[in-house]
Simulated scan of single mutants.
Amino acid sequence: MPLPPKLAAATALCAALGACTVAGPMPGTVEYAAATVSRAYDCGLQVDRGRIIARLDRQERQRFVAANAGYAVKSYKAPHRCEASERERIKGEIGALARR
C-alpha cells in the first residue's frame, strides 16, 4: 500500500535531516578545519595551528578556536587510533589548510 503524499514527504525530510546531523561539518567551513586539526592531533601529526589560524579571516578565527576547543574535548574521550590511509588523508588536508 503506497504512502499518502504528505507522509512520504515527511518521511523523506526526516531521513534527510537525520543524515545532516550525523555527517559532521561541511568541507570548506571553519568548523571542518577545526575538526581536521583535532583529528590530526589524534593521529600524532604535527600541526602548525598558528599558521592555519593566521590564514583565516578575522571573523572566522573565533569560530575556529571555539570549534577546535569543542572537538578537543570530544577527542580527549575518543579513541586515538588512526589508520595509515586516514593519516595520509589528514596530513594532506592539514597541508592544504596551512597553504590556504
Rank of each mutant, 00 (worst) to 15 (best):
T11P: 00
P5Y: 06
A69P: 00
L97R: 00
M1N: 15
P79Y: 05
Y41H: 14
E86D: 09
M26W: 03
A19R: 14
V37W: 03
I52R: 07
K74I: 05
A35I: 00
R61S: 11
A23C: 10
D48W: 08
P4T: 13
I94W: 01
I52G: 01
A16E: 11
D42C: 10
A23P: 13
R81P: 04
R49S: 07
A66K: 06
G92T: 06
V22P: 01
Y32D: 10
A23V: 15
C43Y: 08
A23K: 14
R58C: 04
G24Y: 02
V73Y: 08
A35S: 06
Q46Y: 15
R81N: 15
R99G: 07
S75P: 00
P79G: 09
Q46I: 10
K91L: 10
H80K: 12
G18D: 14
C20I: 05
I94P: 01
A54F: 14
G24Q: 12
D57F: 04
C82S: 02
A23T: 14
H80G: 15
I53T: 07
V30G: 04
R55C: 11
E83M: 05
R63F: 09
Y76R: 10
A72T: 01
G92P: 01
L7G: 01
V73S: 11
A9C: 04
T21Q: 13
A10E: 01
V22F: 13
V30N: 00
E88T: 06
G92D: 05
A19Y: 08
R87N: 07
A12D: 12
